[in-house]
């Protein structure tokens, strides 16, 4: 509850020492998955709010066991949790790489909402919202959330 609450309510003030406490209690895989699930639910809730729609109910938990998969290619890259090492994408694109299933869901959400696959390399988007307009919204949103990255 502490991880979900702090991450959902005040992410700009999370600290390494706080995270270390949570990771010691939960394990870094569980901690990372909690961050990912909280982020995904926050995105859905915030979109509903922005569009003037009611919050969606949480889905019914599915039966089965967690995959418990820890990738072989993760390690210390200077973040609070292990992430993909070696030649790879930027840090923001490997935040949840420790938990592949959550990471896949997260990356798909980012692609749908923002990055648009290979189109992200194009500075002049052929979408209703222009690239500069999209980046203006992103800039203001991240500033209000006090996100350094």
């Amino acid at each position: 509850m502490e991880v979900v609450h702090r991450t959902a309510s005040d992410p700009g003030r999370l600290t390494r020492s706080w995270a270390a406490e949570q990771i010691a209690a939960l394990g870094e895989e569980t901690y990372t998955e909690l961050i990912g699930v909280t982020a995904i639910v926050t995105v859905i809730d915030r979109f509903q709010r922005a569009m003037g729609r009611p919050e969606l109910p949480l889905p019914t938990p599915a039966a089965g066991e967690p995959t418990q998969v820890r990738p072989d290619d993760v390690g210390d890259i200077g973040a609070w949790v292990s992430q993909t090492v070696g030649p790879t994408t930027a840090n923001v694109s490997r935040t949840l790489s420790l938990v592949p299933v959550t990471n896949q869901a997260w990356r798909q959400l980012v692609d749908t909402h923002y990055s648009h696959g290979a189109e992200f390399m194009n500075m002049q988007w052929d979408f209703p919202l222009s690239r500069p307009q999209a980046e203006l919204v992103a800039t203001r949103s991240t500033a209000l959330n006090e996100c350094f990255y």
Partner: peptide, 22 residues
């Protein structure tokens, strides 16, 4: 699309700050 971007960046700041990336 603007609503979608506001929403996703609320997630991006949380995975960035929650995992402590540099």
């Amino acid at each position: 699309e603007a609503a979608a971007i506001i929403a996703i960046f609320n997630g991006l700041v949380r995975v960035a700050d929650g995992t402590g990336i540099q």
